[in-house]
Nucleic acid binder design. Structure first.
Lengths: 209, 209
DNA sequence: TAGATTGTTAATCGATTAACAATC
DNA sequence: TAGATTGTTAATCGATTAACAATC
């Protein structure tokens, strides 16, 4: 199978969710139209995305909801447990450590790290918060493959370097700054303040001020 | 000035931050190279983005750091205060209500709403949490223009409809599902579980399993 | 002047849309 | 058969990169 376009990969989680909602509604079979509707894309794009992964539909009939969900979950790698370490146990880190949406998808938070001595040693979501100098050991012992950065901007690059050094393959950062990783490490960034700034841009246009 | 490409708008917050970091480092003048470096893009793209907004650099010299920062902040609409209402005061809503990165950028959280009677009436970040039926009145009284949805997937579309009905112009959602808004309302979505799923996809490829 | 760096154009690349033949 | 819906191609659109003339 050829390389899957990154825009397609980015839409797969929405398709998986749409399929689960359809299953819950008792739809045994579904169509590119219904999927587009529930995932916020277009029918054309749904068909193109799905056919780039394999031909799992039947012309004139549609897709088997449960079967397609399985296929997509497998492609995404959601069928294997992934171990996650969270660095930064402030409000956001707390929220992440307890987020139920992770366990559903095969993600287990196996370690927490914070630089604040007042936080180190406390128990959050059943885990004892570790100091930064234990990060390497923690990743090694838990065999975590994904790191989440929920620290302020200041220490974020240093934390990122430590995660890379410790050997994680993917990093999700919430820190409001650009991070540098070597090409073999996958970095995704969520930037809440930037999202609001983009909303402000349109808000400004609308209000002409 | 012609329509600004959405890809350009999405990069502007990173440029503003890069410029602030350069200012803090005492750089009076900067270049597309330095900006690309600090914002994680390419020099070509920096020049193209900036010149699509206006010609604010000097050939052979570069850009005036402070001046460019001002210009971009103005384009983004960060110079005016924007009032924000947060719906859903769980761990994430808490974290957002207290996020210091908002105030810095001219965003003020002016209202909190939650459906849980145990949460309604409590004080978070100096605000009394309101019940859902007060949402419309709250938006009206505070003249909020932006709504943040930090609820579970279940009630998210209903909350979204209520925010639209109440008259906000922009919505930022963290709920793990696709939302529908009328075309005149600007919707941005942050999907943490989807980001992890995308990391899982690459992780799977790497480990060949 | 010589070196640096922007602004802009042309070339490339990737993603989306539209249309329709294949086929259930 | 007639109607429905996929899979796939071609056309369009938008975004990025590369190159370089303009100019400080």
């Amino acid at each position: 199978m050829r390389q899957i376009p990154s825009a397609t990969v980015a839409r797969l989680p929405a398709y998986v969710r749409a399929l689960e909602a359809l299953l819950a509604d008792g739809c045994v079979t579904t169509s590119s139209d219904a999927l587009a509707d529930r995932s916020g894309t277009s029918p054309s794009l749904v068909r193109k995305d799905l056919s780039s992964l394999g031909s799992w539909g039947r012309r004139g009939v549609g897709y088997d909801t449960a079967h397609l969900r399985e296929k997509l979950a497998t492609v995404l790698g959601l069928t294997t447990q992934r171990r996650v370490v969270v660095v930064g146990v402030g409000h956001l880190g707390h929220a992440l450590a307890r987020y139920p949406g992770f366990a559903d998808r095969g993600f287990t938070v196996v370690g927490l790290v914070d630089a604040d001595p007042a936080v180190v040693g406390s128990v959050v979501a059943g885990l004892v918060v570790q100091p930064p100098e234990r990060l390497g050991l923690l990743v090694e012992r838990t065999a975590a493959t994904i790191g989440i950065i929920a620290t302020p901007a200041g220490p974020a690059q240093q934390v990122c370097d430590a995660l890379v050094e410790a050997g994680v393959g993917g990093i999700l950062t919430f820190a409001p700054r650009a991070l540098r990783v070597p090409p073999e490490v996958d970095l995704r960034a969520v930037d809440v303040a930037a999202e609001l700034a983009i909303l402000a841009f349109h808000d400004r246009r609308r209000r002409h001020a």
